[in-house]
């Protein structure tokens, strides 16, 4: 039972990251590797600020801001400088490694006995994992509600249409450079926000904690869509969040079967490979990578 509570806690904390990946990968149709560096960035900013005496809430919001900026860099590289999305993400990811080390000052920041958003909840008498579930649930619900509203506004409509049919949306008078930049910022902002909570749950930030983010995010998105469907935006967002929880449960079961925590990255990659081996799933995914390998944002002849 505690195994599942733990998996649920992790799944909900990482759900917002999966939703961030969903925005770039599914809605914008871009494989954005910024996620890998951006996840560490969110954790780094939060831990640095908390150890520096800043309030956990402000530190969490700062992580969101840092993620937005990282997304802005990738978005501008891709649209204004016409660098393919995949490469633009790799460039930002690589640069972020150094930025993250600068932010942290060392390769690991522990949050020894510092107050965090999660300790605030456990101080109210909640167990650590239960506190994480409560925090993760509140954040995920807020993020889904916000995105549901946002993607139903005029701006949200044209961002969705950009990933769907760039040709059509420029013919409808929309500057796709702008919509892509907003979308990539939003996605990375959420990834950093999720990382901030994960760091507060783990009580540390580590320079290499972002490695594998994109695989975990994609696995959650695909598991969520395959298991729970994707009728409309709201349905998809909830499915992705649940996919993140399901992913953690599968990992927990695999670990229980005798594999070690060190095998985690291998397990997540293998899981994604297995999912991709189903033809229906593969079609769903490969159809979706067309924009990442093509040139820049305003290309549409």
């Amino acid at each position: 039972m505690s195994l599942f509570i733990n998996a649920g806690a992790q799944g909900l904390l990482w759900a917002v990251m999966a939703i961030g990946v969903y925005i770039t990968y599914r809605i914008l149709d871009i494989a954005d590797l910024t996620a890998e560096g951006c996840f560490t960035l969110g954790a780094a900013v939060t831990c640095r600020l908390i150890t520096g005496g800043v309030s956990p809430l402000v530190s969490t919001v700062a992580a969101l801001g840092a993620g937005l900026v990282a997304g802005l860099v990738t978005g501008v590289l891709h649209t204004k400088f016409k660098i393919p999305a995949l490469l633009a993400g790799i460039l930002t990811m690589t640069a972020l490694w150094s930025v993250n080390l600068r932010v942290m000052g060392k390769s690991n920041i522990p949050l020894l006995k510092k107050g965090t958003l999660l300790t605030m909840l456990s101080d109210m008498g909640l167990e650590k994992d239960v506190a994480a579930i409560v925090a993760g649930l509140i954040l995920t619900v807020l993020v889904i509600a916000f995105l549901w509203w946002f993607f139903n506004t005029e701006t949200g409509y044209v961002i969705r249409a950009t990933g769907d049919n760039k040709n059509m949306i420029s013919a409808q008078g929309v500057d796709t450079n702008k919509t892509i930049i907003i979308g990539v910022m939003l996605g990375n902002g959420l990834i950093a926000l999720s990382a901030s909570l994960v760091a507060q749950y783990n009580s540390f930030a580590d320079i290499s904690m972002g490695i594998g983010t994109i695989v975990i995010g994609l696995a959650s998105v695909i598991i969520g869509e395959v298991v729970f469907g994707k009728r409309n935006i709201l349905h998809s967002l909830i499915a992705v969040a649940l996919g993140s929880v399901l992913y953690r449960i599968i990992i927990a079961i695999v670990l229980k079967l005798g594999l070690r925590a060190d095998d985690m990255k291998l397990i997540s990659a293998v899981m994604l490979v297995i999912a991709l081996c189903f033809p229906g799933v593969r079609d769903m995914v490969t159809k979706n990578l067309k924009n990442s390998v093509k040139r820049g944002g305003s290309q549409n002849a």
């Binding site: 506004t153 005029e154 701006t155 949200g156 409509y157 044209v158 008078g173």
Partner: peptide, 16 residues
Amino acid sequence: AIAYRRGKPRTLKWGI
């Protein structure tokens, strides 16, 4: 709704 707003700035009002 997207086409109905062709050439107009896209705001944060409801899309339709």
